[in-house]
Design a protein around this nucleic acid. Sequence first.
DNA 1: AACCTAGCCTACCTGTAGGTAGGTAGAGCG
DNA 2: CGCTCTACCTACCTACAGGTAGGCTAGGTT
Lengths: 191, 191
Amino acid sequence: MAATKTAGELLDTAQRFVQHRGFNAFSYKDLASEVGIRTASIHYHFPAKADLGKALMARYRVALDTTLAKLDASNRSPKAKLKQFIGFYRATQGMGAICVCGSLAADLETLPEGVRDEVTDYIKGSESWIAKTIKAGVDAGDFEPDLSPTAVAASLLAGLQGALILSRARDGAPEVLNSVEKSFFLTLAAS
Amino acid sequence: MAATKTAGELLDTAQRFVQHRGFNAFSYKDLASEVGIRTASIHYHFPAKADLGKALMARYRVALDTTLAKLDASNRSPKAKLKQFIGFYRATQGMGAICVCGSLAADLETLPEGVRDEVTDYIKGSESWIAKTIKAGVDAGDFEPDLSPTAVAASLLAGLQGALILSRARDGAPEVLNSVEKSFFLTLAAS
DNA sequence: AACCTAGCCTACCTGTAGGTAGGTAGAGCG
DNA sequence: CGCTCTACCTACCTACAGGTAGGCTAGGTT
């Protein structure tokens, strides 16, 4: 993925910045001083900030696909898979960060063209994986939701993204995320 | 509140910007050209951008309190009140905007000191009103949730904030918010 | 008439944003 | 050995960020 080591470090650092400050609140200068090169050198790897954004989001999306594919490959139950999925968000929260996708979605109107589509794709990808997994649980008789899997999926993702954002503003306590998780599994009914 | 007409217009405009672009993605220049004065004149009303942020958030919080007090004064059922509360978010979504509080919470780490606390207060205020209203519904026998009202409240607020952010990135379709609402009332059980 | 204040202005400052131009040291290859 | 490519550099540019200093004007006060 990351063509070179430096490019990788730049993306790592940029990702951290996005998850903590937002796309518009970090500069090439911030990146440069963190990675240990000059701002001009960043342009060698990412000619414009838009390119950095696109690359970052693309990588993040691939990472999601990989992670979910691995999860699917495991022989866990749908419920266990969903718990693990929520666990990823818990890990993010633990770092006092928010989701890259959530951060960028909040800044959506200010994003360069190409980045927006990546954000949209990421959301759709997440939702459809959740919905698919819920469906599997329904087929297995594990769940009996009163709402369509698609609706429950959308609701979960919104809850997770919102939980990360809100919990950070409330001393970073994990209760919000826990509540979202519990209420999600209750909506699925039948354990 | 707004001492003068211009100050009010500045706050209105700033609020729109925050709800669409985020606190770091609009400048005094943007404000000035929208309101029809010079950037320097804005400093007369709000010496620093931090002051603008504080004033904006303070006003937004007062507006919330007023709105909720009015809602409480009406003789509606807890369920109707909650539906109306969610309706406010739907209205925001209809404008392709996100919640001021959600936007600022996403930019939290970059906010000037005083603004952060206002954001936190806003969240706590919203959550506690929701929880209080749920409790009233429980006492009235309208709801029988399996989770504590506090937990359900946190989950709803997270869902609402997340829904605004995500739905805008998905062509602004209202389904996400609808799903959050439905799943919320299901969690409350017993209609 | 002399003054004060509110509300705006012009003009300017410093710092930083993203980005460009062109150069250079070193690795790898023919 | 000379060439080329990668990955960085210095030096610079324009635009804009938030903010300051000080002046003008209109409407009251006294």
